[in-house]
């Protein structure tokens, strides 16, 4: 347990020490999204009967949680691999489960810190409700854990920073941007509505937003089931890779 706690604390301390880059910058980015989109669309668009800004805020919070959870585990691992300092984690008697749990929970921690920061600065611009806080917490934790785990996979798989950037720009960014952060999928043509239902991030955003307003594109139970199954499958895959020592132990 001390080994797990140490690795988790070290990962938290790592992002905390560069908080300008890892916390303040994504909060500012989300704020800019809100200012621009709200300025353009507030008077023209209502979604699920909500003012556009109110609809947008939970989506931006969740998107920040997801992107930063991914960034934390993936950047820490690729940096350790490129510099060689990963050896300090591989030499001690830490099990592959401890390795996974510590990196993922630290990723969730960063996602939540950034998410709370985004909520704190954007909440002033919208009339938010918290009708079901349990759903908010559940989807924040599951979403952070899924993207944190995906970050572990990407960090282990990538040998170079540009490979990780490709993973981030060509997979994570499209999945998060095309997930209903900025719109309801009911506003899309039927074909793209159907495509959106294959994007697991859509269920994370939709379920998270349900916790604020009690309205969503699909039932939160459906979203929870999809997100739960995705987490279980991805965790099993990642643990199997770590147990084999994939790209870590030659």
């Amino acid at each position: 347990m001390i080994g797990f706690w140490t690795l988790f604390s070290k990962e938290v301390l790592r992002f905390w020490k560069v908080g300008f880059q890892t916390i303040a910058a994504p909060v500012l980015t989300a704020m800019l999204y809100l200012l621009i989109f709200a300025h353009v669309l507030e008077d023209h668009v209502r979604v699920h009967g909500l003012p556009y800004t109110a609809f947008l805020v939970p989506g931006l919070v969740m998107m920040s949680i997801l992107q930063n959870a991914f960034a934390n585990s993936s950047s820490s691992l690729i940096q350790s691999k490129v510099t060689g300092s990963i050896v300090f984690v591989l030499l001690p008697p830490l099990s592959y489960r401890v390795f996974w749990a510590a990196y993922v929970l630290a990723a969730v921690a960063r996602g939540l810190v950034v998410g709370v920061g985004v909520l704190a600065v954007t909440a002033w611009f919208a009339d938010l409700h918290f009708v079901a806080p349990g759903w908010i917490l559940a989807f924040a934790l599951f979403g952070g854990a899924i993207l944190g785990t995906l970050g572990v996979v990407a960090g282990i798989w990538a040998d170079k920073f540009d490979q990780l950037a490709a993973f981030q720009n060509f997979l994570i960014m499209p999945l998060t941007f095309l997930s209903g952060v900025f719109y309801s999928i009911h506003s899309l043509p039927a074909f793209w509505q159907q495509v959106s239902t294959y994007n697991p991030v859509f269920y994370m955003i939709d379920g998270f937003r349900y916790g604020f307003f009690g309205v969503s594109d699909v039932s939160p139970w459906t979203s929870l089931a999809v997100v739960g199954v995705c987490f279980a499958l991805l965790a099993a895959l990642t643990l199997a890779l770590l147990q084999r020592g994939y790209k870590l132990r030659m």
């Binding site: 001390i2 080994g3 140490t6 604390s9 070290k10 790592r14 560069v18 510099t83 060689g84 300090f88």
Partner: peptide, 19 residues
Amino acid sequence: VFDPFFSVRETLRIQSGYF
């Protein structure tokens, strides 16, 4: 190799914790 985020003492405390 080294971890650039930490001081010498932090590095050694962390390494102790791993064990």
